[in-house]
Amino acid sequence: MFLALREIRAARGRFLLMGLVVMLVAALVGIVSGFTTGLGNDTVSALRALPATHVAFAPGAKSDQFNRSLVDASTVARWRERPGVEAAPLGVTIARGTTDRGLEIDMAAFGVEPGTFPAPPVRRGTGLDAARPGLVVSGKLASDGVRVGDTVTVDRLGLKLPVTGVTDDLSYGHVPAVYLPLDAWRAIRFGVPGAATAPDRLPQDVSGVALRARPGADLAGADRALGTLSLPMSKVLEAAPGYKGERVTMTSIQVFLYLIAPLIVGAFFAVWTVQRAPELALLRAIGASRRRLLSYTVLQAALVVAAGTVAGGALALATGLLLGAAVPFSLPAGTLAGTLAAVALVGLAGTCLTLRRVTTPDPLTMLGAAR
């Protein structure tokens, strides 16, 4: 411990430079993790908030199911008759609208039956009412200026819907979510611009059937009998536009950073070990054991990597606070801790490249054998 700290103090410029490099790598990994989590939440938070275990889609929809799948009313009714399953219709589509105060908004319209489990809880105002069509809007829209009591007119259709409540900050495909009764959703999904169509004249289809399956429920048998495709919620998230591609892209960046970190740390300590080979040989000559040399080198690496990683984590958090709500950034404590631990571990793994040189110095080097 004494030798390790004295050496760091004597060559503080080099160790400070190495610590700064580790800090920047850790900060970059933390920032990428924040963007990965933030983008994921901004894409699928409305689906994650759905209290369902599965969603049943039309079997022909193999991707982008919420846009391509249509399930008819009779199939929904038959799902409700299946034992061990609670089923409710669910519609999802993207729309635009304008409030009566002139605020233009994009919205991911979730059609639900009021009183069923997909209907969202409200933080302000009142929930959905089948007898009184209205909107429950995401907290994101409330932050943008949409208020309870406003009236939203859906573009091209002229459909007017009053805002009755505000729910959590939920979004789908980077678009704030709104919840409305199924008849209003069908008017948005199937309505013809410029033509008022009675609800009973519109197709009675929905995007899918939200399911809450109890243990032992035979979903595969139900799919065969009803002609649907049931997906667990982990797969349903991939139905959101762009979710899978974003995850692959951001994860690939993280993987490359994890590969870069040990190479940088390993290269630094490899050069440092070569430069202090005479000192290591002298320590061996006066009786220092290989285990002692090894522990003191690993301690140096651990101090540099730990200090740089903690500083990088603080920099990542500061970046998140600076960005605020301007971009989708989220870095929970658990995610940050896991990210920093991974950076520290791969950084320390890089020191393994130098351990052989540390444990095999020749004492004769200091006794003149190299002359």
Rank of each mutant, 00 (worst) to 15 (best):
V44L: 09
K160H: 13
G221A: 09
R247Y: 12
R284M: 01
G287P: 05
A316R: 05
A210E: 01
P241C: 10
S230K: 09
G125E: 03
R212I: 10
A58V: 09
F2N: 14
L315K: 08
R189C: 09
L294P: 07
G191K: 02
P176N: 10
G111K: 02
A333H: 12
G158T: 12
T339F: 00
R284P: 00
L348Q: 02
D205T: 12
L282K: 00
P118T: 10
D106I: 14
L70Q: 12
L128F: 03
D205H: 14
L24K: 10
E246K: 13
P203V: 08
R214Y: 14
T251S: 13
A198H: 12
L367Q: 11
I286K: 08
A196F: 15
A261C: 12
L280H: 04
A95E: 02
F269N: 00
T75N: 02
T309R: 03
G221F: 07
V92K: 03
A88K: 05
Y296D: 13
S45M: 06
E86G: 07
A369Y: 11
L364R: 13
V343P: 00
F110D: 02
S143V: 13
I286P: 05
L50M: 10
V274M: 12
F35V: 13
D155A: 14
L103I: 14
A27V: 04
V152G: 00
A316M: 08
A184D: 02
A239F: 03
P118A: 11
L128Q: 04
Y172K: 09
A344V: 06
R124I: 14
D155G: 13
A314P: 03
L331G: 03
V137W: 04
T37S: 15
T36Y: 13
T359N: 07
L211V: 03
T251I: 12
F329A: 02
G216C: 06
P328Y: 10
R284F: 00
F329Y: 11
C352F: 15
R212E: 10
G38D: 01
R276W: 11
S252P: 06
F15W: 05
L257V: 05
I105L: 03
V32T: 15
A198C: 07
L70M: 11
N41R: 15
L299I: 14
G91P: 00
Q254I: 15
M18W: 04
G111S: 07
L237D: 05
P181S: 06
T151M: 02
R357N: 11
G208Q: 03
A337T: 09
V343E: 02
L355E: 05
A288P: 03
L219G: 04
P363Q: 02
W185S: 01
L159K: 06
A61I: 04
D144P: 07
L182Q: 06
A302L: 15
W79R: 04
W79H: 03
V274R: 15
G145C: 01
M233T: 05
I105V: 11
L340C: 06
A220V: 12
A261N: 05
R156S: 14
V310S: 03
Q204F: 08
V209K: 04
T351L: 14
D64R: 15
P59N: 08
G139C: 07
S330I: 11
G91R: 00
V71E: 02
G115I: 05
H54M: 09
R14Y: 07
D100L: 08
S138W: 01
P262S: 08
R356A: 14
S33T: 15
R123W: 15
V25E: 01
V209D: 01
G38F: 01
L226F: 06
R9Q: 12
R14C: 05
